[in-house]
């Protein structure tokens, strides 16, 4: 595939951001109102996917429990709202902190193992979290919990425009994405990839392997928690199904088809997956069949993720 010229490649992200920012204003005249919510959801899932890509693609940690942290974030919001908290920022920040704390404990244990054992342990932890949520009858157990009172953004934002949450989500997603790009070319990003590629040598060079991996794991868990908190605000509803293991698996698949360890891998995978699902659902309720076939096709056509099709020969950071 031909490579876009430098200036185009550099301005594309900004054009994308601009069109996303303008979309809610143009949507009514285009009769696309429904898709404002769709894109808002997409942006939130992208945050979770980007955080997973960080530990999975850059860190080589094949975790199959990432939706557990999404769930922890979402249920933190539920608990706070149930307790009378009304500040959105406060609730989201708390979700980040609580999910980070869970990731610290789970990571501290899981990162003592490797490969398939790591996968199993992260899966087991997220299953435990799922069961915990089911057992929380105060928050609706299996039926979930509806957030009746809306969380407030304050500073006059709440009544400014019906789509204000969209822009807040977009701003957070853009910030997070920018940060993840910078992280990838920082000392920490290089160290993490070094550990992925040759852990023994990194140990011999004097890197504290375990601590670096744990820091990455905690950061990714915290970001997933933010995604969960935003998801709670987005849906105004949370149920244990957000942290079902199949959600972790779907996230993982999205990252893989997008491009493992590539900066656009998370966003591209999420956009592709959710858009395909949305389109197929228009035609049939049995959309999972054609979806599976398409997935196989993508894996064969772009084994390194769809993003790799747009890359030059040199490895991107």
């Amino acid at each position: 595939m031909k490579r876009a010229p430098g200036w185009l490649a550099r301005s594309l992200p900004w054009l994308l951001l601009l069109s996303l920012a303008l979309f809610p204003l143009l949507a009514p005249s285009l009769d696309l109102d429904y898709y404002v919510g769709f894109i808002r959801h997409l942006l939130i899932v992208m945050m979770a996917a980007t955080s997973l890509n960080f530990i999975l693609g850059y860190g080589g940690m094949v975790a199959l429990g990432h939706s557990g942290f999404v769930g922890v974030g979402a249920y933190t919001v539920v608990a706070l709202v149930d307790g009378g908290v009304t500040s959105a920022w406060g609730a989201w920040l708390a979700a980040v902190a609580v999910a980070g704390a869970f990731a610290a404990v789970i990571g501290a244990v899981s990162l003592r193992t490797r490969g398939v054992y790591f996968l199993m342990i992260t899966l087991a932890f997220s299953q435990m979290l799922h069961h915990l949520a089911v057992s929380l009858s105060a928050y609706g157990g299996d039926d979930g919990y509806s957030l009746h009172a809306p969380l407030l953004l304050g500073v006059g934002l709440d009544d400014a425009h019906p789509h204000v949450l969209y822009w807040v989500v977009l701003a957070l997603a853009a910030l997070l994405f920018t940060f993840s790009c910078r992280l990838a070319v920082s000392r920490f990003g290089y160290a993490l990839r070094g550990i992925r590629d040759n852990e023994t040598r990194m140990a011999a060079l004097g890197y504290p392997i375990y601590r670096i991996k744990l820091a990455a794991f905690i950061g990714a868990g915290a970001v997933a928690g933010l995604a969960g908190a935003l998801l709670a605000s987005h849906n105004k509803f949370v149920s244990p199904s957000v942290m079902h293991w199949t959600e972790s698996a779907t996230l993982l698949v999205m990252v893989v088809i997008g491009g493992l360890g590539r900066r656009w891998g998370g966003p591209a995978g999420v956009a592709l997956w959710l858009t395909l699902a949305e389109v197929l659902k228009l035609y049939t309720e049995y959309w999972r069949w054609p979806m599976g076939l398409l997935l196989v096709l993508i894996v064969f056509l772009a084994p390194k993720g769809v993003v790799s099709l747009f890359e030059g020969p040199r490895r991107a950071g």
């Binding site: 920082s186 000392r187 920490f188 290089y190 990194m202 060079l205 004097g206 890197y207 504290p208 670096i212």
Partner: peptide, 17 residues
């Protein structure tokens, strides 16, 4: 990567290496 291991913290994540 080898030089970085010795020179200061590898937890820096905001500055381009």
């Amino acid at each position: 990567l080898a030089v970085q291991a010795r020179a200061g913290s590898s937890f820096r994540c905001l500055r381009r290496r």
